[in-house]
Amino acid sequence: MSALLEITNLSKSFGGIKAVNDVSMTVERGQICSVIGPNGAGKTTLFNMISGVLRPSAGKIIFDGQDTTNMKPWKYAAAGVGRTFQNLALFSQGTVIENILVGRHVHMKSNALDAAIFWGRARREEMAARQRAEEIVDFLEIEEIRDMPVGGLSYGLQKRVELGRALACDPKILLLDEIVAGMNHEESEDIARFVLDIREELGIPILMVEHDMKIVMDISDYIHVINFGSKIASGTPDEIKANPDVIKAYLGESEGAAK
């Protein structure tokens, strides 16, 4: 079976600076895959190209058999790419359920007339969207806050809502950008559990950029390491921990262990 996501010789330049340089990698179906590296290594730039926020300077992206290298950004969700962002991108005045429903917009096919009379297709789509949103609320264990404005929630719960909105588009792959950044230990452990459940129960493969090495090593099947825009290593968590190039990139020395 072919990989779900195949990235070949991907590069991105900003002026004379190469933020990503000739990176190739794959994400297999059913896999939790992580991209790690020191600050400024090019991880988020890579993510932005995969999700259509940035157009590559060179290289190719094949997702689920389709060349998405130059796809229009607004088509990515419909193609099956779900994403969370390093900085929260929620509607703070909206409730939890309203924010999750935003993720269903890609599946809504009703026109203005359908919506105006709210009958037939528009009614069926609205009912289906609400049912799916409620399923996600249950899955993420946020029933008690479903009707609360997102802006009044803790940072950890807001991150969970953003995860729910990404799931609402029924993605074929989920891209998580620093999903536990800014969380305390308990919140991070909760999110890690949900990430595992997303793969095991929902069957959605995951590609994540993450700085929390404990989370990365605990839940990843495979890891790619980037430094100064170039990939320096790929392997299982045990292989990455023992890789001298990774140790040097993180610690600045040839002996020790990746933290």
Rank of each mutant, 00 (worst) to 15 (best):
E187S: 11
S11T: 13
I232N: 11
I145T: 11
K75Q: 15
G80M: 08
E253S: 07
S154M: 03
I32H: 02
I136K: 06
L113R: 15
Y250K: 03
T236M: 10
L4W: 00
D221A: 01
H107V: 03
T44Y: 10
A77V: 15
D245M: 11
S13R: 12
Q86M: 10
F228L: 14
G80T: 11
I173S: 00
K241R: 15
I240Q: 03
S234G: 13
A192Q: 11
V161W: 02
A128F: 09
A181F: 12
I204P: 10
L163A: 02
R124Y: 08
F14N: 04
R160L: 13
K109T: 14
S2N: 13
G52F: 00
T69F: 07
L10I: 01
W119E: 10
V102R: 00
W119Q: 13
L157H: 11
E134D: 14
R193F: 07
L176M: 12
N99G: 06
H224L: 05
E28R: 12
A116G: 10
I198L: 12
E98M: 07
L163G: 00
I36C: 02
V195A: 14
V137C: 09
I36S: 03
I215Q: 12
T68C: 07
L46Q: 02
M71S: 11
R146V: 11
I32G: 02
E186T: 14
D218E: 13
D238K: 15
R132M: 14
G103M: 01
V246I: 01
V23I: 08
G229E: 08
L5P: 03
V35S: 03
D218L: 06
L175Y: 07
E200G: 02
V35T: 04
L5F: 07
S254K: 04
R146W: 00
K18V: 06
I219W: 12
N111Y: 13
I219N: 05
L167D: 01
K75H: 15
